[in-house]
Amino acid sequence: MSSARQRNGRATRRAARFVLGREHRCHRKARTEYIKIEKTKAIADAQALLRLAILVSDRSFVPTPRALGPQSPEEAMRVGGQAAAIVIAGSAVATILFFGSFKDSNAQSNARYLPQYAADGQLLLPKDFHEWVYVGSPLTPNALNGGQANFPEFHNVYIEPGSYAIYKKTGEFPEGTIFFKELQLTLPQENADGSRTEASGRGYFPGKWNGADVTVKDSKRFADTNGWGYFNFNHHEPKASMAKVKSKDECAYCHIANAKKDEVWTQFYPLLDNKDAR
């Protein structure tokens, strides 16, 4: 019995040396010998590999000479080849799963949030806009606008991420693009111009939220306003849950006359205006 185990041990070591030689040296003699073995045992190898793959998929299974059952040097070499094949195949499967997950992750991250409307045509307040791409914050302090700016006071502007991804590639805002402008008051003024002094110096500092405006691109739905719809979700808190589209003389006319690109104030948003940033 001891002699048989020794022979099996020697056979297993020879198989290991053979596999390593095939893997690392790949000299002609090793390839020729391997091909001979594979040709004579092709069907058995395929069946054994399938069984081994099923076993290896069970984390509780650890391949051993006894589990694989080598009974001769030839069998040991065949099992060694199978084990190497399983390692290679396992690596390939792991690679495929990784890149498949990466691809799915990218697809998910680039999935677009499109405008949602109520039955009467009102736009529903977009969700999770704070997670969108931030493009800029123009500032119109009340104190510098007769005590009541049209859009008080910080205009924190976000673009829907999927639309931004397309814009980066094409330089054009796709249909369904949403811009979310959240208004935010400054902290209470200490000076006549509305400014105050904080640790960083004198200026204007963000305070409470103050409502929102939303712009949507839809060339068919908003054909009368150059393809963009404008919505006011209150200029105070809380924000409205839905809003009606504004008439052309309320919002669109100003964008048409003054906005730099496709009715969008890209002149205030370097991320959208700077070609190098895209």
Rank of each mutant, 00 (worst) to 15 (best):
7 R>D: 12
7 R>T: 11
7 R>I: 05
8 N>V: 14
8 N>G: 00
8 N>M: 06
8 N>A: 08
9 G>M: 08
9 G>I: 11
9 G>F: 10
9 G>R: 14
10 R>C: 04
10 R>F: 13
10 R>N: 08
10 R>L: 10
11 A>C: 02
11 A>F: 01
12 T>W: 15
12 T>P: 01
12 T>G: 05
13 R>Q: 07
13 R>C: 05
13 R>V: 15
13 R>Y: 09
13 R>K: 12
14 R>A: 12
14 R>H: 06
14 R>Q: 08
14 R>T: 07
14 R>P: 00
15 A>V: 07
15 A>H: 01
16 A>T: 04
16 A>C: 01
17 R>Y: 11
17 R>C: 06
18 F>A: 04
18 F>I: 01
18 F>Q: 03
18 F>E: 00
19 V>R: 08
19 V>A: 13
20 L>F: 00
20 L>A: 07
20 L>V: 00
20 L>R: 06
20 L>C: 02
21 G>P: 02
21 G>D: 03
22 R>F: 14
22 R>T: 03
22 R>I: 06
22 R>Y: 11
23 E>C: 12
23 E>M: 13
23 E>A: 15
23 E>P: 00
23 E>I: 02
23 E>F: 14
23 E>S: 12
23 E>H: 09
24 H>K: 10
24 H>G: 03
24 H>P: 00
24 H>W: 08
24 H>E: 04
24 H>L: 13
25 R>T: 05
25 R>W: 04
25 R>E: 08
25 R>D: 08
26 C>I: 01
26 C>A: 12
27 H>P: 04
27 H>A: 08
27 H>S: 10
27 H>N: 12
28 R>E: 09
28 R>V: 10
28 R>Y: 14
28 R>W: 15
29 K>S: 11
29 K>V: 15
29 K>G: 06
30 A>Q: 11
30 A>T: 15
30 A>F: 13
30 A>I: 15
30 A>N: 10
30 A>L: 15
31 R>D: 13
31 R>K: 12
31 R>Q: 14
31 R>Y: 07
31 R>P: 02
32 T>Y: 13
32 T>D: 09
33 E>S: 03
33 E>P: 04
33 E>Q: 10
34 Y>L: 15
34 Y>W: 11
34 Y>C: 15
35 I>N: 09
35 I>M: 11
35 I>T: 07
35 I>Y: 12
36 K>L: 07
36 K>S: 06
37 I>A: 05
37 I>M: 07
37 I>N: 09
37 I>F: 00
37 I>E: 14
38 E>L: 13
38 E>C: 14
38 E>N: 08
38 E>R: 14
39 K>G: 05
39 K>P: 03
39 K>N: 12
39 K>V: 03
39 K>M: 09
40 T>N: 13
40 T>D: 12
40 T>M: 09
40 T>C: 08
41 K>T: 12
41 K>Q: 13
41 K>F: 14
41 K>A: 15
41 K>G: 09
42 A>Q: 08
42 A>D: 12
42 A>C: 00
42 A>S: 04
42 A>P: 03
42 A>M: 03
43 I>N: 10
43 I>D: 11
43 I>A: 13
43 I>S: 13
43 I>Q: 13
